[in-house]
């Protein structure tokens, strides 16, 4: 519990995270509203662009500790190490759940379909944001470097949709769509996030810092 409070304080006391969360919400809403001009069913697709600042935030939460050497202080305070990552994940999840819900609600109100807020699609959009945040967090704890981590996350998110352009075989194409983080069912995306987080935790535990 203390670890969670400590991580919450870290998140709260630097200006970066708040701005990036705001950017996540703003970009999601703006893109969603713009897309709904084409087709109202696309209103919640804004999260596919809004996830970008969120990925930056989730990467920086861990990689900035490595670049400043703060990670040593953090891990000295919690020698078993894994609670640090779990606490970061929980704090991030809470922050994204709130931000994402507000963004989805705002999008639906602006596009005039506010009553749809309690729908499966809304829950899926918020869930998507949370899972992307956790995937980024896990990737960053694996790579430690923010540039490499964000590059990896952006590649995971945006390369498969490009790749499907080249794949002519329909079966492979469908397979790629089903497993790429961006287009996959939330359950598959959750698998991605869980894998990245557990690999990250394992590495943080095993590695010298």
């Amino acid at each position: 519990m203390n670890v969670i409070r400590a991580e919450w304080t870290k998140l709260r006391t630097t200006p970066g995270p708040a701005w990036l969360l705001l950017a996540t919400a703003a970009v999601s809403v703006a893109t969603g509203v713009a897309l709904s001009a084409v087709d109202t069913r696309l209103a919640l697709s804004g999260v596919y662009v809004g996830q970008i600042p969120l990925a930056v935030l989730s990467v920086v939460i861990i990689s900035s500790e490595y670049s400043t050497g703060l990670i040593r202080t953090t891990l000295t305070a919690v020698p078993s190490r894994w609670p640090v990552l779990v606490a970061k994940a929980l704090v991030l999840t809470a922050a994204v759940a709130v931000t994402g819900s507000l963004a989805v609600l705002a999008t639906l109100l602006i596009t005039g379909s506010g009553q749809a807020f309690l729908s499966q699609a809304s829950a899926r959009a918020v869930f998507h944001l949370i899972l992307i945040a956790l995937l980024s967090l896990g990737t960053a704890s694996l790579t430690r470097d923010s540039a490499v981590a964000i590059g990896t996350v952006l590649a995971l998110l945006y390369l498969p949709p490009l790749l499907t352009q080249l794949i002519t075989n329909p079966v492979l194409r469908r397979l790629l769509d089903q497993f790429a983080p961006m287009t996959a069912h939330p359950a598959i995306l959750a698998l991605w996030s869980a894998t990245a987080l557990s690999a990250g935790t394992l590495m943080v535990r095993r590695r010298d810092t």
């Binding site: 084409v38 087709d39 696309l42 662009v49 970008i52 600042p53 990925a55 930056v56 990467v59 920086v60 990689s63 470097d145 923010s146 540039a147 981590a149 964000i150 590059g151 952006l154 945006y158 949709p161 490009l162 352009q165």
Partner: peptide, 27 residues
């Protein structure tokens, strides 16, 4: 002066418009 923000900005500027241009249902 920050890696994560810089990498994101450039990838978004160069790749994202192309990706959006590929979306079939947009005008």
């Amino acid at each position: 002066r920050r890696s994560a923000a810089a990498v994101t900005a450039v990838v978004v500027a160069v790749v994202l418009p192309y990706l959006v241009a590929l979306i079939p249902f947009l005008p």
